[in-house]
Design a protein around this nucleic acid. Structure first.
Length: 563
RNA sequence: UGGGGCGUCGCCAAGCGGUAAGGCACGGGACUCUGACUCCCGCAUUCGUGGGUUCGAAUCCUACCGCCCCAGCCA
């Protein structure tokens, strides 16, 4: 694969400079470093695509590394789901699956070295005292009374910390930097804390665990990472990242580069709120199709290709931004337009009887599976005297520019005939329209010689005798407002929830071939949207379709602006 | 009132002293047996604001203004 050195974003520009200067001997090595304490969401997808994508772009490598330095919040369940999600997105870490916990022994040795260098010390201050000594944003901190312990004493104390002689929280190891630094991260940051917690990988081997700021640069170093890409909030930590590497005298030091994390309109990326949505039952789980999680998007039917394309298009920069969810939807449509099987499904059925069509006749009509891609072939669909069309496709008293069916009007049934509405049958009591009596023009069969008469509207339909029942779930944005996380509502996010984010339709009728639908395929229900089988709730004899995204609907715009 | 960032079209985002890319959204039109797709056309005399340097500034200098992040023994 050829190396692409055209700058696509500021990170690539930095890498190009490094390549030109020979900084890392021409190597590019990145890593995606999730903490296994939750499920991945589309914001992580941006980081995954950036890290793996950048490596690929420069013929480099990208590691998957779990940042598991805090056993009190981390679980194996999450490491498995994260691996699955990264793989599903289409990326391969090959044999480079690592854990920060793989390096606990080496990190301990680095800490010992810093003590020997006189640049780290054991501090007996309580957490509250440490906070007080740290000072504030505008006032410098004060030195800990334990700051000047001898190297020997520090070495001894740190060893005994490891050996479990002291209580949780009673002591910490701190870097000795500068309590007056305007950067609070440099005011003698904690390197190790005592915490008796069983770790998901190291079990009870350790009772001291390193902090992120200490573990991260050294993990990067140990893996030979060249460009350590992280989000903006770590910008303040970069001096500390560099301090550890420089103070330890390490060569070929990785370079931390920060970029803005992804925000999307009408949803939230906050792990805390997402967890609340799950725990409070607002959604059915982390993989609820309305969730911005990778597992939610996957269950909904979104393809990895669409997500990758989206991550490509949003760009990478340093300004906080909130991307219009319409762009994601556009990427999904663009991908599915090429690959989805066209089928007909009636979501809200309205009975239609073709009065001049023979009672027992069934015609097998030809239908193309994807007009964008003839290679996807054709299929047969049955046509008969009694059909169902969409309730929305009939209006007794239509407005101007309404191309669909109404009394006395003609419309084409897709792949079939032109029909004309002769009579409307209503429920005597409620006045509800329950059936349409129509006639068809036998000369207008699709594909036939005289079948080219033009009518303005074309409807989708199913044959009553042949149709298969299905449940269809229509999804909408989870929130009513574009920026729910900015809203300062006393009731929290709850008041901002979209009460109609899911609509379940249980009496849908789909064309018979869909009885054999599979979860690996995407379907375009003609004139409606893209759908996929719900992998969890569908089963033998039970079809449950999720709407991935609707088709664009310019009629809806006309209708809405008119009224 | 300390430090670190960021401010280019409704939303993203190129641009790095030579006279504002692109995508999404939006508006108009063509095509259409999906009001889909596709295709045309339109969409910042202006780059947070004010000064300055220059033949020439979104790009350099300067002073303001606005927004984000930091006071976890979280990451």
């Amino acid at each position: 694969m050829a190396v692409n050195t055209e700058a696509a974003n500021f990170i690539h520009a930095i890498i190009n400079e490094d390549l030109k200067a020979g900084t890392y001997g021409g190597r590019v090595h990145t890593r995606f470093p999730p903490e296994p304490n939750g499920y991945l969401h589309i914001g992580h997808a941006k980081s995954i695509c950036l890290n793996f994508g950048t490596a690929a772009r420069y013929n480099g490598l990208c590691n998957l590394r779990f940042d598991d330095t805090n056993p009190s919040k981390e679980e194996v369940e999450f490491v498995e789901s994260i691996k699955e999600d990264v793989r599903w997105l289409g990326f391969d870490w090959e044999d480079r699956l690592f854990y920060a916990s793989d390096y606990f022994e080496q990190l301990y040795e680095f800490a010992v070295q810093l003590i020997k260098l006189g640049r780290a010390y054991v501090c007996d201050l309580s957490p509250e005292e440490i906070r007080e000594y740290r000072g504030t944003l505008t006032q410098p901190g004060r030195n800990s009374p334990y700051r000047d312990r001898s190297i020997e004493e520090n070495l001894d104390l740190f060893r005994r910390m490891r050996e479990g002689e002291f209580e949780d929280g009673s002591r910490v190891l701190r870097a000795k930097i500068d309590m007056a630094s305007p950067n609070l991260n440099m005011r003698d940051p904690v390197m190790y804390r005592i915490m008796r917690q069983t770790h998901h990988r190291t079990g009870d081997k350790w009772c001291i665990y390193p902090m992120y700021d200490f573990a991260h640069p050294l993990s990067d170093y140990l893996e030979g990472i060249t460009h350590s890409i992280c989000t903006l909030e770590f910008e303040d930590h970069r001096p500390l990242y560099n301090w550890y590497l420089e103070t330890l005298g390490l060569q070929n030091r990785p370079k931390q580069i920060e970029f803005a994390r992804l925000n999307l309109t009408y949803t939230v990326m906050s792990k805390r709120i997402l967890r609340q949505l799950v725990e409070e039952g607002v959604v059915s789980g982390w993989d609820d199709p309305r969730m911005p999680t990778i597992s939610g998007l996957r269950r909904r039917g979104v393809t990895p290709a669409a997500i990758r394309d989206f991550c490509e298009r949003i760009g990478v920069a340093k300004s906080n931004s909130t991307v219009d969810i319409g762009l994601l939807e556009h990427c999904i449509r663009e991908d599915l337009n090429k690959s989805a099987y066209r089928v007909m499904a009636v979501l809200r059925p309205l009975k239609v009887v073709i009065e001049n069509y023979p009672e027992d006749l069934v015609e097998e009509l030809d239908a193309e599976n994807n007009p964008e891609n003839p290679a996807m072939g054709t299929r047969k669909i049955p046509f008969s005297r009694v059909l169902y069309i969409e309730q929305d496709d009939f209006l007794e008293d239509p407005p101007k520019k309404y191309f669909r069916l109404s009394p006395g009007k003609e419309v084409r049934l897709k792949h079939a005939y032109i029909i004309k509405c002769e009579r409307v049958i209503k429920d005597e009591k409620t006045g509800e329209i329950i059936e349409l009596r129509c006639t068809y023009d036998p000369t207008t069969r699709s594909g036939g010689e005289s079948g080219n008469r033009k009518v303005k509207g074309t409807l989708h339909w199913v044959s009553a005798r042949h149709a298969v029942k299905a449940e269809v779930r229509l999804f909408d944005h989870l929130f009513l407002v574009p920026n729910p996380e900015e809203e300062k509502d006393e009731q929290g996010y709850r008041a901002l929830l979209n009460p109609n984010s899911m609509e379940v339709l249980t009496s849908c009728l789909v064309e018979p071939g869909l009885a054999h639908a599979t979860t690996d395929k995407r379907y375009q229900f003609l004139r409606q949207g893209y759908f996929a089988l719900d992998p969890k709730d569908s089963g033998p004899g039970k079809l449950v379709f999720n709407r991935i995204v609707s088709l664009r609907d310019s009629w809806a715009k006309i209708r809405n602006s008119g009224s």
